[in-house]
């Protein structure tokens, strides 16, 4: 299969298995507990996740995986890089302290690995039994020859689009309003993506603790959204 820059659109397409997932990632529980029903609350939540949330750590890991794939391709530090892949993959999964969020990531990662394999890019290295979402996203972007910055931007864009799509099903927003929010997010996504590229894993902390707690409490709330 020939590689084309248009491949990146496949990744964020709402029709492919990955885009088709509609997980609320605690959004539903959060809105419910705080009794929020307006679109501004959703926008505020997404912006604060981009600015102080755990999603930043996932995004940073994309870059680390990408660099390792590059080094492995050049035959550099084979042994240590293979160990690093396994270790970082487990590391980022261990940072999700709710079972539901880990299972979501594992499922999405599996689907994306399957899809990339169908596209002719089978994962070449040893894998843990359960894989993280950033590992599969990074692998797809590496294979599709997408640049690192675009990989991070696409990741944030796709995540925020999914959050909005989940929000549409929870509160009365309307799709035009959702589009307006998505447009307003673009500048922030671009800024945060550049910031993440310049940081190390050790420099990225999260402070969105209320949302993290909502994710843990999610299994308390009846929903069809969390697992599609």
């Amino acid at each position: 299969m020939s590689k084309s820059h248009l491949l990146k659109y496949l990744l964020i397409s709402p029709n492919l298995p990955v885009g088709g997932f509609c997980y609320s990632e605690g959004l539903e529980c959060y809105l419910h507990t705080k009794d929020l029903k307006d679109s501004n609350s959703v926008k505020e939540l997404i912006i604060s996740e981009l600015k102080i949330g755990q999603i930043r750590l996932d995004a940073r890991l994309l870059c680390d995986f990408f660099d390792i794939f590059n080094e492995l391709n050049d035959g550099k530090n084979l042994k240590s890089n293979l160990q690093k892949l396994l270790s970082l993959d487990k590391w980022i999964l261990s940072s999700k302290d709710s079972l539901e969020l880990r299972e979501q990531q594992i499922q999405m990662a599996k689907s994306l690995f399957d899809l990339t394999k169908e596209f002719g890019f089978e994962y070449l290295y040893k894998k843990n039994k359960k894989n993280s979402w950033p590992l599969s996203w990074s692998w797809a972007c590496y294979c599709f020859e997408i640049t690192k910055l675009e990989m991070v931007e696409n990741f944030f864009f796709s995540w925020s689009a999914n959050q909005l799509s989940a929000a549409l099903r929870i509160i009365p927003i309307g799709s035009t309003k959702a589009q307006l929010i998505q447009r307003d997010l673009l500048a922030i996504i671009s800024k945060v993506s550049k910031e993440i590229m310049d940081k190390e894993i050790d420099d990225i902390y999260f402070g969105n603790v209320g949302l993290a707690m909502a994710q843990q409490n999610h299994n308390e709330l009846y929903t069809k959204l969390f697992r599609n």
Partner: peptide, 26 residues
């Protein structure tokens, strides 16, 4: 022996930003 088998990882930063954020400490 093979690689670091992480059981749990937590990297938290609490500052004014998270104190005032509704999805932070509210």
């Amino acid at each position: 022996d093979l690689y670091d088998d992480w059981e749990y990882v937590d990297q938290i930063e609490l500052s004014k930003a998270s104190y005032v954020a509704k999805s932070g400490m509210d």
